[in-house]
């Protein structure tokens, strides 16, 4: 089997240590188990798996749900979310880690989903804007964005909502200046920053337990 694996179309001249037993056929992803997972330690002792370049089934934890998705290694987390899981709240705008429209929570921290390979996300908790609230049950941040009209065309809005949510968890009492630097990784084109400033500070107040 090892020999067969070595002959798989792949990279000539590169060693291909593969993963041998204990993995069900087709599931090459076992080397990608969650860090600290129950079986993680045992698996980690195995030689590392090399997967791809074709599709491999991976398991992602998104908005508290376990989702199976088959991706090539080159597929970004953003494209996995949008194209394969129909979670289109995260937007594709610059696609190079500048504009913030694709911001998700990655183990609770804000991250650009366009700059993370989907396979890297295996074993991590992903929260997208869809996981923060629904139109009938808005989160405090979402409610304040609506209340202060912190949006126009709305295309950047989900990214801002996620970034703002993450920011206020770490910085519950920001000054206006701190808040705007804290959202320095997101752009809006319509120019909704005036409403956004009010929304961020208002949300901070509510999250601190204010009225």
């Amino acid at each position: 089997m090892a020999n067969d694996e070595a002959k798989r179309p792949g990279v000539e001249g590169l060693s291909r240590r593969t993963f041998l037993k204990s993995v069900g056929a087709g599931s090459v992803g076992a080397g990608l188990l969650p860090r600290g997972g129950e079986s993680g330690a045992a698996q980690a002792a195995e030689a590392p798996a090399v997967v791809g370049p074709g599709e491999t089934s991976i398991t992602l934890s998104i908005n508290g749900e376990t989702r199976e998705v088959s991706v090539e290694p080159r597929v970004t987390l953003l494209d996995a979310l949008r194209n394969r899981l129909d979670l289109t709240g995260s937007k594709k705008v610059c696609d190079e880690g500048t504009c913030g429209a694709c911001t998700v929570l990655y183990d609770g921290e804000p991250a650009y989903a366009c700059s993370i390979l989907a396979m890297e996300a295996e074993g991590h908790e992903i929260t997208t804007v869809e996981g923060l609230g629904t139109p009938d049950e808005l989160s405090a941040v979402q409610e304040c964005f609506v209340k202060h009209d912190a949006l126009q065309c709305g295309f950047c809005t989900p990214g801002f909502v996620v970034a703002c949510t993450a920011y206020l968890r770490e910085n519950p009492e920001p000054t206006p200046e701190e808040a705007q630097r804290g959202l320095g990784g997101n752009y809006c084109r319509c120019g909704t920053y005036a409403g956004m400033r009010e929304a961020v500070l208002d949300a901070a107040r509510i999250l601190r337990g204010g009225e």
């Binding site: 709240g89 937007k91 804007v129 609230g133 629904t134 139109p135 808005l138 949006l151 709305g154």
Partner: peptide, 17 residues
Amino acid sequence: PRLDGPDKVTGRAKYAF
């Protein structure tokens, strides 16, 4: 308040993209 605000802030608003 903008009527489609809740759809936009929750990522439910569907754009062509």
